[in-house]
Design a protein around this nucleic acid. Structure first.
Length: 489
RNA sequence: GGCCUCAUCGUUCAGUGGAAGGACACGAGAUUUUCGAUCUCGCAACGGGGGUUCAAUUCCCCCUGAGGCUACCA
C-alpha cells in the first residue's frame, strides 16, 4: 500500500496542503479540525499550509464570514504560510481551463436545457431509477453545433467521462473504486459562463501546487471526478485523504441542531485554545496510544495520516468540558489575564458585575478557583460572590445551616474574632474558628458550613479558610453582618 | 432508488490469531471543610451469520445497522 506522507519521489520540502472553506457563516468545528489536520501534516513534514477562501457563491459569501474564518484559525494558531487565495479572483483562470479542456476534445458543449434535465432527473428518481446524462450533445454533428451556436443557444461545457473504472488510493480508506458506468459527464462551465465548484477546486489546487489533499469525507465521491479534471488538464494528481465526519450524539453529521458547532462560540464560552487544539486533534485521530491530553508540539511531532480513524466520531461535549477544566487548572494568571478582563467587562456591561476587579485581586481569585471551574466565563457567573456580596442564599443551604439554634450569635461572635485578627491569613483564620468550635463543644464543620453560606451564598466552593483570606477581612465581616440580619428575619 | 464509506464499553481512543485496556460520563467509598475539586474502587463493549484456522474481536464473504454522496450548490 502506498504511504500517504511521502515516497522517495516526494521531496518533503515541496509538500503543500490547504484548507478551503466557504465563507458562508460560522466556522464549523469540523472545518477547524480539517484545517488542523492539514496544518499538522504540513508542520510534521516541513511542508506548507495554505488557505483558500472559496467565495465564488456571491449569494452566500460575506466579508464578515471571511473574517470569522481568519479570526478562528488565528485564535488556534493554525495560520497559513502564504497569502490567502481568494477563489473569486480566479474565475477567468477557471474559464480558461474549461476552454482548454473543450479544445483538447476531452470536453464538449452541451446545449441541453438545465431545467428539463433537472425535471428528468427528478422523474427518474421518483420511480427509483438511476439517472445519468444521456450524452445527447456528445452525439451532435458539427453542423448541428454550428446551428445552435449561430442561434445563440446557451451552452455549458461537460467533461467526457471515460468508460473504464476509476480507482485511487485514499490515505484513510485505502483503495476506493468507482465504476465508470456510475459516473456521468458532469458540467465544468455553466450555461451562463461561470465555472462549477468541481472545476474551480481542481484548477486552484493545481495552480497552488497542492500535493496532498486532506478534507472531509463528503468529498470522497467527488474525488474521481476531480482526478478526471486533473488528467484532462495534464496536471499531476495529488494524494487524497478523506477524514470522516464529526457526528452529533445522534450519530448524524454535527450541525446546529446538536448545539454549538461554531468555533467562535467555544471561544466566547471560555474554552482555551489549547483545549480545542487538544480535543479536535484527538477527535478522529490517534497517535496509537491511550493519551487524552496532548500539546501542540506533540501533535505536530506525532501526526500522521495513518492515525486517522476511518469512522465518524461523536463530538462529546462532556469530555471537552472536562478537558477544558484540566487546562484551566494548570493555567497561570498571566496567560488568561486579558481574557478574564474581557469577561469582567462583559459581566459589568450586562449588569451582573458591580465594578471591575482590581488585577492583583483577580489574580488571587484565579489561583483560588482555577482548579474547580470549567470555563473562564464561570468566574463571572457561578463565582460572582468572589467580587461582590451575595444577593441571595442557597435555599437548601439556609434550611440546613441557618436554622440552627444560636447560629446568628455564633456568627456574630466569630465576626468579632475576625475583626481582632491582626494578620489575616488562612492559618490565623483557621485557628480562630477551630478555637471557637472547641470552646463551644461543636465540630468545626458546624461553623464552617454556615460561614461559607454567609460569605458566598452557596454551599460549594474553595476551601473556606483560603476563601476568607482572599475575600479580605472587611468583606467577610460585612457579609456576616448581612447574613445575620437575614437569619433574624 | 443508485453509489461510496464505516462497525470494540453510553461516548472516545488502545489492542492482539491464544482469556479486551485507558479516558469522559455514570455509580459507590474516602477526604471528619463543602463541592460540580481530589483520590480509590466499581459498572460497562468486540452487531448477527457463515467461512479460513488447532484457535478468531483480530483475516475473507454475506446480512444488518449507521452515515455520506447522488446538481449548470460549494
Amino acid at each position: 500500500m502506498l504511504k500517504f506522507a511521502t515516497d522517495a519521489a516526494d521531496s518533503p520540502k515541496s509538500i503543500r496542503v490547504r484548507f478551503a472553506p466557504s465563507p458562508t457563516g460560522d466556522l464549523h468545528v469540523g472545518g477547524v479540525r480539517t484545517a488542523l489536520f492539514n496544518y499538522l501534516f504540513a508542520r510534521h513534514t516541513g511542508g506548507k499550509f495554505l488557505l483558500r477562501i472559496e467565495d465564488t457563491d456571491k449569494e452566500r459569501s460575506t466579508p464578515a464570514a471571511i473574517q470569522v474564518i481568519l479570526d478562528g484559525l488565528a485564535w488556534l494558531g493554525v495560520t497559513p504560510d502564504e497569502p490567502v487565495v481568494y477563489q473569486s479572483a480566479r474565475i477567468e483562470r477557471h474559464k480558461e481551463a474549461a476552454y482548454q479542456i473543450l479544445k483538447s476534445g476531452l470536453g464538449y458543449r452541451c446545449f441541453c436545457n438545465p431545467e428539463e434535465l433537472t425535471a428528468k432527473r427528478e422523474a427518474a428518481r421518483s420511480i427509483g431509477k438511476p439517472f445519468k446524462y444521456d450524452r445527447t450533445c456528445l452525439k451532435l454533428k458539427p453542423a448541428e453545433i454550428e446551428g445552435k451556436l449561430a442561434a445563440g443557444t446557451p451552452w455549458a461545457v461537460r467533461v467526457r467521462v471515460p468508460d473504464e473504472d476509476l480507482t485511487f488510493e485514499d490515505g484513510v480508506h485505502s483503495e476506493v473504486r468507482i465504476l465508470g458506468e456510475d459516473l456521468e459527464d458532469f458540467v465544468l462551465l455553466r450555461g451562463d459562463g461561470t465555472p462549477t465548484y468541481m472545476l474551480a477546486v481542481v484548477v486552484d489546487d493545481a495552480d497552488m501546487g497542492i500535493t496532498h489533499i486532506i478534507r472531509g469525507d463528503e468529498h470522497l465521491l467527488n474525488t474521481p471526478k476531480q482526478i478526471l479534471i486533473y488528467k484532462a488538464m495534464g496536471c499531476p494528481v495529488p494524494r487524497f485523504a478523506h477524514v470522516p465526519l464529526i457526528l452529533g450524539t445522534d450519530k448524524k453529521k454535527l450541525s446546529k441542531r446538536h448545539g454549538a458547532t461554531s468555533i467562535t462560540w467555544y471561544k466566547e464560552q471560555g474554552y482555551l485554545p489549547e483545549t480545542m487544539l487538544n480535543f479536535l486533534g484527538l477527535l478522529g485521530w490517534s497517535p496509537g496510544d491511550d493519551r487524552n491530553v496532548i500539546s501542540r508540539d506533540e501533535l505536530i511531532e506525532l501526526f500522521d495520516v495513518s492515525g486517522i480513524i476511518p469512522h465518524g466520531a461523536v463530538f462529546d461535549e462532556q469530555k471537552l468540558r472536562w478537558l477544558n477544566g484540566q487546562y484551566i487548572s494548570k493555567t497561570d494568571f498571566q496567560s488568561v489575564r486579558k481574557s478574564l478582563l474581557t469577561y469582567a467587562e462583559q459581566a459589568a456591561a450586562d449588569g451582573r458585575l458591580e465594578r471591575l476587579p482590581d488585577e492583583a485581586y483577580l489574580e488571587q481569585v484565579w489561583n483560588l478557583i482555577r482548579s474547580r471551574i470549567y470555563f473562564l466565563s464561570d468566574l463571572f457567573y457561578s463565582a460572582l460572590y468572589l467580587f461582590q456580596d451575595p444577593t441571595s442564599y442557597d435555599e437548601k443551604g439556609m434550611r440546613k445551616h441557618f436554622q440552627k439554634e444560636g447560629i446568628a450569635d455564633r456568627l456574630k461572635t466569630l465576626s468579632g474574632d475576625f475583626e481582632s485578627i491582626s494578620r489575616w491569613t488562612a492559618v490565623s483564620i483557621e485557628e480562630t474558628i477551630r478555637r471557637r468550635a472547641e470552646e463551644w463543644g461543636a465540630s468545626a464543620s458546624e461553623l464552617i458550613h454556615p460561614l461559607r453560606l454567609a460569605v458566598s451564598g452557596v454551599t460549594v466552593g474553595p476551601g473556606l479558610f483560603e476563601l476568607l483570606e482572599v475575600l479580605g477581612k472587611e468583606a467577610v465581616v460585612k457579609r456576616i453582618f448581612i447574613a445575620v440580619e437575614r437569619i433574624k428575619q
